[in-house]
Simulated scan of single mutants.
Amino acid sequence: MNVTAQEPSAEKLAKLRQALEDYAEGAVDNPLFDHEAEEIKAEVRARALRLLDERARSRHELCERLVKLEFAKPVIEDVLDDLASVGLINDELFASEWVRQRHARRGKSARALNQELIRKGISSSVRAQALEQIDDDDEEAMAWTLAVKKAKSIKHPPADRAERDKALRRIVGVLARRGFNEGMSLNLARRALEQRCEELGTSQE
Rank of each mutant, 00 (worst) to 15 (best):
Glu7Gln: 15
Gly179Leu: 03
Arg119Leu: 13
Val172Arg: 09
Gly26Ser: 03
Lys68Thr: 10
Pro74Thr: 05
Leu66Val: 02
Lys41Cys: 09
Gln204Phe: 11
Ala56Ser: 11
Gln115Ser: 14
Ala42Asn: 06
Glu64Asn: 10
Phe94Cys: 01
His35Met: 07
Glu21Leu: 13
Arg178Tyr: 06
Asp78His: 12
Glu11Pro: 03
Ser9Glu: 01
Thr145Cys: 07
Ala19Val: 09
Ser125Met: 08
Phe71Pro: 00
Val44Glu: 00
Glu182Lys: 10
Ala130Asn: 04
Val172Lys: 12
Leu69Phe: 07
Glu194Ala: 11
Val67Trp: 00
Glu54Asp: 11
Arg59Ser: 13
Glu54Pro: 04
Ser124Arg: 15
Val99Asn: 05
Leu13Glu: 02
Arg100Gly: 13
Leu146Asn: 00
Arg50Ile: 10
Ala112Met: 11
Lys152Asp: 15
His60Phe: 15
Met1Ile: 12
Asn30Phe: 01
His35Glu: 05
Leu62Lys: 00
Asn187Lys: 10
Gly173Trp: 10
Leu146Pro: 04
Asp135Val: 07
Arg170Lys: 13
Ala48Leu: 00
Ala141Trp: 08
Ala42Phe: 05
Arg47Ser: 04
Phe33Thr: 01
Arg164Thr: 04
Arg105Asn: 10
Arg47Ala: 02
Leu52Glu: 01
Glu132Gln: 14
Glu139Tyr: 05
Ser153Pro: 01
Glu7Leu: 14
Val44His: 04
Lys166Cys: 10
Ser203His: 08
Ile122Pro: 02
Arg57Trp: 05
Asn90Glu: 04
Lys150Gln: 13
Pro158Gly: 03
Val99Leu: 08
Ser96Pro: 03
Arg178His: 15
Arg57Asp: 02
Glu116Lys: 01
Glu25His: 11
Leu131Ser: 00
Glu36Lys: 14
His103Tyr: 08
Leu13Tyr: 07
Arg50Gln: 12
Leu188Asp: 00
Glu140Pro: 03
Leu131Met: 02
Leu66Cys: 01
Leu131Ala: 03
Glu70Thr: 12
Leu69Thr: 03
Gly121Gln: 06
Trp98Met: 06
Arg177Asp: 14
Leu80Phe: 05
Ile118His: 11
Lys108Tyr: 15
Arg178Asn: 09
Glu43Thr: 09
Gln195Asp: 13
Ala19His: 06
Asp160Tyr: 09
Ser96Asn: 12
Ile134Tyr: 02
Leu32Gln: 02
Ala95Val: 00
Ile134Trp: 00
Ser58Trp: 06
Met142Lys: 04
Ala112Arg: 15
Arg196His: 06
Asp138His: 07
Ala192Pro: 03
Ala159Leu: 13
Val28Arg: 11
Arg102Ser: 09
Arg50Phe: 15
Ala95Tyr: 04
Glu163Asn: 05
Ala37Glu: 14
Arg102Asn: 15
His35Val: 00
Ala10His: 06
Ile171Ser: 02
Lys166Gln: 15
Ala84Ser: 13
Ala189Gly: 06
Glu64Trp: 03
His60Ile: 00
Leu88Arg: 02
Arg100Lys: 15
Ala141Glu: 15
Arg164Lys: 13
Asn2His: 10
Met184Asp: 14
Ile118Lys: 14
Val172Leu: 07
Leu62His: 00
Ala14Thr: 09
Ala128Gln: 15
Val28Gln: 14
Arg47Trp: 04
Val3Leu: 14
Asp136Ser: 14
Val67Lys: 14
Leu117Met: 08
Val67Ile: 12
Phe94Ile: 01
Arg196Thr: 06
Ala37Val: 08
Ile122Arg: 07
